[in-house]
Design a protein around this nucleic acid. Structure first.
Lengths: 163, 163
DNA sequence: CTTGACCTTCCCATGATAGGAGGGTCCAAT
DNA sequence: ATTGGACCCTCCTATCATGGGAAGGTCAAG
C-alpha cells in the first residue's frame, strides 16, 4: 500500500538530507508529538515548512533532537536542556558552565535517590515484619495509621452532624 | 487580630473533637488544598458541613488524613493509597493484600533508583573528565551531542536499563 | 460596624508526555 | 481520474499531585 517514499522534493528549495517530521522522529528517537512540543516551547528554532505547511528537518535539526533526547535520558530538565543547548551552540562557552549544570543536576538526582532509598528501607522493614497471609494483622497498615493506636474502630464516638 | 478561637459551636450539634479544615490541616500535616482535593477524588468520604457550609472534620477524618500523609511520605501513588485505605477500613483484610501493594511499590521505587543511579554514574564519569574551566572543550557536551567519542568509558553511551 | 482571619467554589498552572478529533496532503494502486 | 491510506496539520484534553489566586460568604473580636 502507499508507503510514501521520500519526496517533498517538490517543496520550494531543497537538496537532500531533508526529512519530514515522521522521519526526523525515527532518526532522532524523539516522538512526533514531542518534536512539535519542543518547537512550541522554543527549544528548537523554527524549522522550515513545505508549501503544504509540512515541517522540514535538516540534519542539524535532527542532531539537536538527538542531543535533547540524550539529555532527557540523563534526566536533565527541559530548563537545563535549554541552557545546555545554548552552550553547545556557543563555541566559546566555558566548560565550567556546562559542568556546573551537570553538577547541579547530579545533586538533585542524588537527593532524590536518597529519599527513595529511605522509603524503600522503611518499606522493606515493614514488609519484612508482615506475615502476608490471610490474617488481618499488618505492621504496614499500623505504621500508616500512625502506629500509636492499632486503630480503626477506636474513636467511634463520632458526633452526628445534622445539617 | 481576630484570631478566631475554636468555635463552630454554633453549628447545630457538636461536642468536641470537631475541627474546621484549617485545624484539620494543622492536625494532619495535609494542606487545606489537598484535603479538599482528596475529598473531591473520593479518598475521603464526604465530611460533614456546618450550616454555613464549612467542612467539619472528626478525629477519625483527621486520622485518615494522617494515614494518607504517611503513605505519600512513603511514596505511594494515590491509587495505591486508595486501596490501602480500603484495606485499612476492612477489618477482615488479608495482610497479604497489603503486603502485595507495598511490594509492588517497592519494585517501582527500586527500578527508579536504579535508573537514577545509572544517570548519576554516567554524569559522574563525564564531569570527572571535564576540566570545568574557561575553555570550551567539554566531554559532557560531546556525549550529549553524540559526536564521535563522547564516550570514552564504559558506562557512557547506554542510558537504558532493562525495565 | 468594621476588620481580618478564615471559609467556600471555580479556574488556571506546573512538567513531560500522550491521545484524539477534524481536516488537509501526498502518492501509489486501482 | 479516483480512491485508499499513510502521513501531515492544528487544537483540545488528559495525566499526577500540588499550589496559586480570584470573588465572595461567615464569624469572632475590637
Amino acid at each position: 500500500m502507499g508507503k510514501r517514499e521520500l519526496s517533498l522534493e517538490h517543496a520550494d528549495a531543497l537538496g537532500q538530507g531533508l526529512l519530514d517530521i515522521g522521519r526526523a522522529s525515527k532518526a532522532s528517537g524523539v516522538s512526533v508529538k514531542m518534536i512539535r512540543h519542543y518547537e512550541a516551547i522554543g527549544l528548537l528554532t523554527k524549522v522550515g515548512r513545505t508549501h503544504a505547511n509540512y515541517r522540514v528537518y535538516t540534519d542539524k535539526d535532527v542532531h539537536t533532537l538527538r542531543f535533547i533526547k540524550r539529555a532527557r535520558t540523563l534526566g536533565f530538565s527541559m530548563d537545563d536542556i535549554r541552557q545546555l543547548l545554548a552552550l553547545w551552540q556557543n563555541r566559546s562557552r566555558p566548560s565550567a558552565s556546562v559542568k556546573k549544570i551537570a553538577g547541579g543536576h547530579m545533586q538533585v538526582l542524588k537527593r532524590r535517590i536518597l529519599e527513595m532509598q529511605s522509603m524503600v528501607a522503611t518499606l522493606e522493614h515493614l514488609t519484612h515484619n508482615c506475615h502476608g497471609d490471610s490474617r488481618p494483622d499488618c505492621p504496614i497498615l499500623e505504621d500508616l495509621a500512625g502506629d500509636g493506636h492499632g486503630n480503626s474502630g477506636g474513636t467511634a464516638r463520632s458526633g452526628h452532624l445534622p445539617l
